[in-house]
Design a protein around this nucleic acid. Structure first.
Length: 569
DNA sequence: ATAGGGTTAG
């Protein structure tokens, strides 16, 4: 374990990183004269000693790395200076407050009370920002979240802001701990100062509806004034929106009928309903709702028509889409960027690329300004059609107009470059993303990992895993499967095996196809010992699957919440 | 604020 002796928490390294590093050093430092003699245990003094005996120039022999323009960025310092090799994949945990709290919360606590008790020895300077970050990390684990939340209330010079309460209400609602959730709402109400807001009650109603407790969601609305929130069109719309999103247009409609006389409605009341009927494929009723809307002296607007268009797009009924566009024109209602995105995207998916681009032209002619999401869709469909030059042009256009790319746009660009084996381009986007402070997600890396497995670029692979790690991206089952398969296909069996092992140890069940592929390769290379080991691991994984689906799940969430930094070996 | 967001290789 890579650890400082004074402070055992100072260094840690993920198993993946160690194995890759180990693998890399075995292959690149230990040249033909000395076969693999890299220390088996990632023990800091040994490593330093080991690296000291090697020549720095040995480390920079660069046969698998030919991306000059990106070399400086990708090439971790460890490739140049072996001493730094120890430091690169090692994360310095500068025990910040959030780390201290996270470490305590990470232990499996039986109850929130227990969490609060364990925390009671700690004195910290809390802020609402810090509390929110902790809650975000544990937003899928109500016990540590609520224990921490309760403990925080006892700290001097700290008070939960209403937003923090709302966040906690939402976490409890997500975990379906509705009794505790209601207690918290009552507590907020008792503080006074309008702690309970429409925001709070919207979360309550949404979570109840999501849990299928529609009646309770509606009752929450009926009694909403008890908490000082008015029973007006905004709260009515929030209730109806919650019901529609959680698959019950019918109930939203009933609520609408019940309150339409007593509460003055607005346009979005109708649009919520229209969207609901469109979403659940009841276009006749959607149309009827539009008529009723007009009886109430509201004109159907771009929201109403876009809902209709989306429904027709889902049916690939582009004739109807054109009809609605005509109707909009007659009524003097201009389509907006969302409308155009939906149509263009649907045409692209239906492989009608020319028609999709016509929509883009039409949009420009109409003076409608494309936004980031529109361009993302456009890039996606151009990439899918293999029109890489056009993609490049679009990105330049965006830059000229000062429209920032978002994660989806970057992910799309990386995906396109990766599938076309444009290593340099793909990495260039990742770099640009970083410079742009755009936070990558798991989907950012998947195509890159696949590409560099295919290219057997172990150093870049190592770099990427490190990059993910630093960005708090938890590796999940699918990622391991991808690595194992990718490495397997290219004869990097030892590394494939170690990822397989890590996958199983983290509680992800490998797919049969992944397993059999690896076994077949190992047989082909007569690697009997490794084959046995993999077979044992697979048995273990199957056992886990039968006895505890839960444990696999909680492992996923844990690794997501904590990041992949796990001390190993 | 009520409408838009791509897969999993072969």
């Amino acid at each position: 374990m890579l650890r400082s002796f004074q402070n055992p928490n100072l260094y840690s390294i993920s198993k993946t990183h160690f194995k890759l590093l180990h693998y890399f050093l075995s292959n690149h430092l230990c040249t033909t004269t000395e076969p693999t003699q890299v220390p088996e245990s990632p023990d800091l003094p040994n490593w330093v000693k080991f690296l000291d005996t090697k020549h720095p120039e040995a480390a920079s022999s660069d046969e698998d790395f030919v991306i000059p323009s990106l070399a400086k960025w990708v090439e971790a310092p460890m490739l140049k200076d072996p001493r730094k090799a120890v430091k690169i994949p090692v994360v310095e945990i500068a025990d910040t407050d959030i780390d201290i709290i996270s470490k305590v919360l990470k232990n499996q606590h039986p109850s929130p009370e227990n969490v609060a008790q364990v925390l009671s020895g700690i004195v910290l300077d809390l802020s609402n920002g810090l509390v929110e970050r902790v809650l975000r990390r544990f937003s899928n684990e109500w016990v540590p979240a609520f224990g921490f939340f309760t403990w925080a209330k006892t700290q001097t010079n700290y008070r939960h802001a209403p937003e923090v309460y709302n966040f906690m209400v939402d976490i409890l609602g997500k975990a379906e701990k509705f009794d505790i959730m209601w207690d918290l709402v009552v507590e907020m109400d008792q503080i006074g100062e309008r702690y309970v807001s429409l925001d709070t009650m919207s979360k309550v109603m949404r979570r109840l509806a999501r849990a299928g407790r529609y009646k309770e969601a509606i009752d929450a609305f009926r009694g909403i004034e008890r908490f000082g929130v008015s029973k007006d069109v905004l709260s009515l719309n929030a209730l109806m929106g919650a019901l529609v999103k959680e698959r019950s247009v019918e109930l939203a409609h009933e609520v609408f009928l019940e309150f339409k006389e007593s509460i003055p409605l607005n346009v979005s009341t109708f649009n919520v309903l229209i969207h609901g009927w469109c979403k659940y494929r009841n276009l006749d009723v959607a149309r009827k709702t539009m008529e009723e809307m007009e009886k109430h002296k509201f004109k159907p607007d771009v929201f109403s028509y876009t809902s209709l268009i989306e429904a027709y797009c889902n049916d690939k009924d582009f004739r109807k889409v054109a009809e609605v566009l005509g109707e909009m024109k007659d009524k003097g209602c201009e389509p907006n960027a969302v409308t155009y995105t939906i149509i263009m995207h649907a045409l692209g998916k239906a492989r009608e690329i020319t028609k999709a681009l016509e929509i883009y032209e039409k949009m420009k002619m109409s003076g409608c300004i494309p936004d980031t999401s529109f361009y993302s869709s456009l890039i996606f469909l151009l990439g899918k059609a293999g029109r890489l030059k056009d993609v490049q042009e679009i990105v330049e256009d965006m830059e000229k107009q000062g429209i920032k790319l978002d994660v989806l746009a970057y992910n799309t660009l990386i995906n396109i470059a990766s599938t076309h084996s444009q290593e340099e381009v793909a990495l260039k986007w990742l770099k640009k993303m970083e410079e742009d402070s755009c936070k990558p997600d798991l989907k950012t890396y998947a195509p890159l990992l696949k590409l560099f497995c295919r290219k057997k670029r172990m150093r870049v692979l190592c770099f990427l895993l490190d990059h993910m790690f630093k960005n708090d991206i938890g590796i999940e089952g699918g990622t391991y499967a991808l690595l194992v398969r990718g490495l397997c296909m290219n004869g990097k069996l030892a590394t494939a095996c170690s990822f397989f092992e890590e996958m199983v140890l983290k509680g992800f069940a490998p797919k049969d196809s992944t397993y059999s592929m690896l076994i077949k390769e190992l047989e082909g290379k007569s690697m009997q010992k490794e084959k046995k080991h993999i077979e044992r691991l697979m048995l273990q994984a199957r056992g886990q699957e039968i006895t505890g689906n839960d444990s696999a799940m909680s492992n996923v969430e844990e690794s997501n919440a904590q990041g992949p930094c796990v001390c190993v070996m």
